[in-house]
Design a protein around this nucleic acid. Structure first.
Length: 438
RNA sequence: GUGGUCGUAGCUCAGCUGGUAGAGCACCGGGUUGUGGUCCCGGGGGUCGCGGGUUCAAGUCCCGUCGAUCACCCCA
């Protein structure tokens, strides 16, 4: 029986997942991020002190453990990769070179109610850069480019990274005279769901806004642009505040850098506010075109205060691809398929059981040349053996003989072949993933 | 964690106001004496998610539970 929120894929889907991970990993390394894996558990205090206030953390305890463990002794499964990473950096600061760029591809756990693309155990692929004391802003501009590069190499719908900056919102709200900027942010965040009228009402009721202030907040939230024009649009609203200026300047740099290196990838969208509450500046959120209703498949942001030890601070910026969420959503729409359900490229047919040794020899020779090969399970009729391959999508069946022949079962074409020379086309060597149903 | 909808064969589904389960596809075998996919014939397969209750009788009604999904919450 399945357990709610803990998905298990079939081999075909796992192959797709592995291909996706391969692509993400190689891209991360292409940009010089170093691999890291942290333990799955953290002290509960570490998890909770970093803003995760809800009870969605899974606790770990031994069956034979004592009932009255203190909370500082309790272990919880990590719910993201950023908090463990921050802890790791503080702990190992003396052994790391800064700025430190690392990637981490691991499972994380959250006790939320599952839905399509929302799980309790899921895989994240995360990159972060941290530095001592202060982190140059250009890293904030780099994050979307890495993600855009990784995702654009996959047969999935185009990604659109929505970017905002908390300084813009907070500065704007402050400039308006609103003091509870967090509450304003939380309310504005619901705009898409509850609509402008209700948002306006809530701003007045819960954030102490006047009609005019609420209207201004909505006007800010409505601004979205894939170029620098959003800056003028904000200025036209006539609010001024130093933090607002700083935020606009930063956001502009993200948008302009993306326009230079990856046109169409990034959009400044001043209503996005989400992410964990440790974010202090830039925030990212990513949609796949045509899949907007499934929410963000990749998000992150700048955190200036997450990691610190004594007087030392380690500000960072990072972004994380929700691999399981992205795949779950695409699987649900049958928008990702793989060319076969096994890695095998060649099935060696078995004429008689007493020829298994010879067939194993053929398979060995092919494998030594990097061709994934298996020998037929039984000396059934050749029709059955071909069917065995066909069911699994194995493209070639090898017939031992004088001479050996190999058949492309898709075309039916069968040619003489030599184990020391025959080579399938590169496209057939390994399963390939595509965006179209098979 | 809260609320709604749904849960019949591997898959898609049918099963009227309760009367002890059915189709198509898939699968297996044969026609086809060792090179598949078409066609024809035949066959296997279901504790009706699970548990309890009401009833002479429950796939069908009631309660609980598990799972899927949607909304809230929150977020990958």
């Amino acid at each position: 029986m399945p357990i709610s929120g803990f998905p298990e894929w079939l081999p075909a889907q796992r192959m797709i997942e592995q291909r996706v991970i391969d692509r993400i990993r190689s891209t991360f390394e292409l940009y010089g991020f170093a691999p890291l894996e942290t333990r799955s558990v953290e002290p509960l205090d570490t998890l909770l002190s970093k803003g995760e206030t809800s009870k969605e953390v899974y606790l770990l305890h031994r069956l034979q453990g004592s009932e009255d463990e203190k909370s500082e002794d309790q272990l919880g499964l990590h719910f993201d990769l950023t908090v463990p990473f921050a802890r790791f950096v503080v702990e190992n600061a003396g052994k790391l070179q800064f700025p430190f760029r690392r990637y981490q591809i691991q499972k994380v756990w959250r006790g939320e109610r599952p839905q399509e693309g929302r799980y309790r155990e899921f895989l994240q692929a995360d990159i972060d850069v941290v530095n001592r004391e202060s982190l140059p802003f250009h890293y904030d501009t780099e994050m979307p480019l890495v993600i855009g590069d990784a995702l654009s190499g996959l047969p999935i719908p185009q990604a659109r990274i929505l970017v905002n900056n908390r300084k813009v919102c907070e500065g704007f709200y402050r400039g308006l005279g609103l003091t509870d900027t967090d509450q304003v942010l939380r309310t504005v965040d619901k705009l898409d769901k509850i609509g402008a009228a209700k948002t306006r009402q809530l701003l007045i009721e819960t954030a102490g806004a006047t009609e005019a202030q609420a209207a201004a907040c909505l006007e800010l939230a409505a601004i979205s642009a894939d170029d620098g024009s959003f800056v003028d649009a904000v200025r036209k609203l006539g609010v001024s505040d130093p933090l607002l200026d700083e935020g606009l300047d930063e956001l502009l740099r993200v948008v302009e850098t993306a326009r230079e290196h990856a046109p169409g990838l990034v959009v400044a969208d001043l209503k996005i506010a989400r992410g964990l509450d440790y974010y202090t500046g830039t925030v990212y959120e990513t949609q796949l075109r045509g899949y907007e209703r499934f929410g963000s498949i990749c998000s992150g942001g700048r955190y200036d205060n997450l990691a610190s030890s004594g007087k030392e601070r380690f500000p960072g910026v990072g972004i994380s691809i929700g691999v399981s969420r992205m795949l779950g959503v695409l699987f649900g729409k049958q928008a990702l398929t793989v060319s076969r359900s096994v890695p095998t490229a060649v099935l060696v047919a078995l004429p008689h059981e007493d020829q298994r040794v010879a067939c194993d020899r053929i398979a060995g020779a092919l494998r030594r040349r990097g061709i994934p090969t298996e020998v037929a399970p039984a000396a059934a009729k050749f029709g059955k053996q071909i069917q065995y391959a066909d069911r699994r999508g194995i493209p070639y069946v090898w017939f031992p003989g004088e001479p050996d022949t190999v058949k492309d079962i898709r075309s039916g074409e069968q040619v003489d072949a030599d184990v020391t020379a025959w080579q399938p086309p590169d496209a057939d060597l390994h399963p390939s993933i595509s965006g179209e149903p098979r």
